[in-house]
Design a binder for these strands. Structure first.
Lengths: 215, 215
DNA sequence: TTGTCCTTACCTACCGTTAATTAATCTGAC
DNA sequence: GTCAGATTAATTAACGGTAGGTAAGGACAA
C-alpha cells in the first residue's frame, strides 16, 4: 500500500457528526421529541461519545443553536454595510434569508424553533438575546430609513416587527410545505408591497404571486 | 361511513378539569414537555380517570385543540358576514384576535403552537386542515377586496399570507413578552400600514407606535 | 343488574446519564 | 530509538427515574 498523505483527520469527526445528526433531528422533531439515542444512531457513534464532547443534551442543543445562529446572522449583518438605501437593504436581506431557507431548511427550522417556542419549552437558553439580535438589525435599518425619509408610517420598532412578520411567515410556510418556492422575485415583491401597501391604486407597484397553492 | 362525533355529551367535572389543566400546561410547555402526571395533578384527579375520559395523551391534546380552535374561528368567521368593506373586516378581525390574545393567552398559545410546530413535532393531527381554515377566511376577504377594487398589489393568497404574518408576529410577541399590549389602536394602525405601505409620504396615513420596547 | 365513575397497584419501555474499562496516540527521559 | 506514562477517544453495560398506559375491582345510582 502506498502511503498517501495522512488522512485529513478532521479534528473531532465524531463531534461534527453528532452536530450534524442533532441538527437534522432537532429541526424536525424538536428538542424534547428527539432522544439522545436517535442522535448517536444518526451520527454512528456510541452514547458515551456524545457525553465526551458535550456536557449533556442541553449543551449539545445550545452549542448547535449558537453555531447556526451565528452563521445565519453573520450573513445578514454583512448586508447592512454593503448596501446603501433602505429598500435595497430590505430586499437584500429577505432575498438572503430566502436563499438560506431554500439551501438549508434545517438550519432555518432550528432557528425559528427557538424564536417561536413556548415560554418553558426546550432547554433554558436566552431566546430573547437571539431574537433581539435579529430584531435590532431590522430596527436599525428602519430607523435609518425613517431618518432619511425613505420610510414613514410608524416607529422603527413597529416597522421592524411588521417586516419580520411578513418575512418569517413565508419562511414558516416553506418549512411546513417544502414545495413552496422562496424566489428572489417573491422577496422583491414582498418588499414592494411592504413599501407601497395593498390599498388599491390604478397601477400597482407590485403584483405578487403566491408561492404556493393551498389545497 | 365517516365516524360521526358523538353529540356534545354533558361534560363532566373531571373531564373539564382535565381539559383546563391540559390547556395551561400544553400552552406553556408544549406537548412533549408536558407529562400526563402533571396534567392529572393540576386537575386533581388520578391517572385512570384521564384514561376514562380520553383514549390517551394524544386524544386529549387533539380534543383540546379542536375545542379551542373552533371557539376561536367561530368568533372570527362571524365578522365576515357582519362587516361589509375589506378594510373594516381586516380591522375587525385583527382587533378581535388581539382581544382574544389579551383575554386568554393560553388559548392563543396553544393554537399558534399547532400552526408553527415542526413537521414531526407533537401528536399526529391535521395541522394543515386547521391552518387552512384560518388562511381560507383571510384569502376570501382578500379576494373580495381585490374584486371590489379595494385592494391591489398581489393575488389573494399573497395578501392573506402577508396579513397573517403581520398579525401573528404581534400575537407571538405578546406570547413571549406578556407585557406587550395588543390594543385596538395598534390593530387599526397595522391594517392602515398594510393598506398604505411604509414608503415615505408627506402625511403618513398612520403613525404606529410599537407595543413594547426591546431591551 | 347494569353501567358510570373512580381507586389502588402495577407494568414495560425508554429516558438522560454514568461507571468502569480498554484501545490508540502522543510525550519525554534515557 | 525505546519504552514508561500520561492523554485522548471510544467501548460495554448498566443505573435510577419517569414516561405513557393498564388490570382489576369497588361504590353507587338507575
Amino acid at each position: 500500500m502506498a502511503t498517501v498523505a495522512p488522512a485529513p483527520k478532521t479534528v473531532n469527526e465524531a463531534e461534527s457528526k453528532l452536530l450534524e445528526s442533532a441538527l437534522t433531528l432537532f429541526s424536525e422533531k424538536g428538542y424534547e421529541g428527539t432522544s439522545i439515542r436517535e442522535i448517536i444512531e444518526g451520527a454512528g457513534v456510541t452514547r458515551p461519545v456524545l457525553y465526551y464532547y458535550f456536557e449533556n443534551k442541553e449543551d449539545l442543543f445550545r452549542r448547535l443553536v449558537e453555531i447556526k445562529f451565528t452563521e445565519f446572522t453573520n450573513q445578514i449583518e454583512a448586508i447592512k454595510s454593503s448596501v446603501p438605501t433602505c429598500a435595497d437593504r430590505l430586499k437584500a436581506i429577505i432575498r438572503k434569508e430566502f436563499v438560506i431557507a431554500e439551501r438549508s431548511p434545517e438550519t432555518v427550522r432550528l432557528i425559528l424553533q427557538v424564536f417561536f417556542s413556548l415560554p418553558q419549552q426546550g432547554p433554558r437558553l436566552d431566546k430573547t438575546r437571539l431574537a433581539h439580535a435579529r430584531f435590532r438589525l431590522l430596527e436599525d435599518i428602519m430607523r435609518d430609513g425613517l431618518e432619511r425619509n425613505e420610510l414613514s408610517g410608524g416607529d422603527a420598532q413597529s416597522l421592524a416587527l411588521v417586516f419580520l412578520g411578513i418575512m418569517d411567515m413565508h419562511i414558516m410556510a416553506k418549512s411546513n410545505r417544502p414545495e413552496t418556492r422562496l424566489t428572489p422575485d417573491l422577496a422583491d415583491g414582498l418588499v414592494d408591497l411592504f413599501l407601497a401597501g395593498a390599498g388599491f391604486r390604478e397601477a400597482p407597484v407590485t403584483a405578487l404571486v403566491s408561492p404556493y397553492t393551498f389545497g
